[in-house]
Computed example of a mutant assay.
Amino acid sequence: MINLQRRIIHAPVTALGSLLERLAGPGDLLWPVDWEPLRLDRPLSAGATGGHGTLRYTVTSYQPGLRVRFEFAAGSPLEGFHELWVRALAPDRAEMVHILVARPRGAMLLFWPLAARWTHQALVADLLDNAERAVTGRVRHPARWSPWVRLLRAVIPVPLAEPAP
């Protein structure tokens, strides 16, 4: 499966790149607070390990201010990777992109199409809202959780205060 989400933001690529550099660290303005925290065992760099919720992954590639790739850990319910990157479109306009390229395994074969896909897309939309808000001061078209995502979040509450196992 491939899941791609992107947002064009009216700001220089360097502004978005500085947000990317703080991902999972102090002053992280990207990761949405309404979701399980993204935690890494060290500052964002190649070799850092961690994840969010029960998903574990390793940073396998990191270009500061441009791109980070996370590969899912062996035994994970997903086999593959996800990336977040930024690219300049004009001096005052850039794009932030998140792509998930993975194969579900085990229970995730059923869980992905029923629940995980929808909550994943909502999380990334919230992250893109955060990026736009951080560099422009507003969000032109804020993401809205679908009724299905709101129901899933009510039935499967997200622990926000504790680090991921």
Rank of each mutant, 00 (worst) to 15 (best):
A125T: 04
P147H: 01
G80W: 05
L151A: 15
S45T: 10
R103K: 14
T49Y: 10
P163N: 09
I99D: 02
G65Y: 08
M108E: 15
V124I: 11
L152I: 05
T54Y: 04
P157H: 10
D92T: 11
L123R: 12
P147I: 03
D126K: 04
A116L: 14
V158S: 05
L152K: 02
Y57S: 15
G27R: 04
G50H: 06
G27F: 08
T54S: 08
P165A: 02
P157S: 01
R138G: 01
D41L: 08
L100H: 07
P26T: 01
E132G: 07
V86G: 13
P104K: 02
V59S: 00
G50I: 04
L66R: 15
M108W: 11
L40R: 05
H98E: 11
A161W: 11
A143Q: 11
I156V: 09
S76H: 06
T58C: 06
W148L: 15
R105H: 10
A73K: 13
L44D: 05
I2P: 00
L19V: 11
Y62S: 01
R117V: 02
G17K: 07
L84S: 06
R87K: 15
H82A: 09
L19W: 04
L40F: 11
F111P: 02
L78A: 05
R144G: 00
A131Q: 03
L23D: 01
A122C: 09
A11S: 12
W145R: 14
P163D: 10
D92N: 13
P147W: 04
S18M: 12
S76M: 03
W148Y: 03
E36L: 13
L4E: 09
H120R: 12
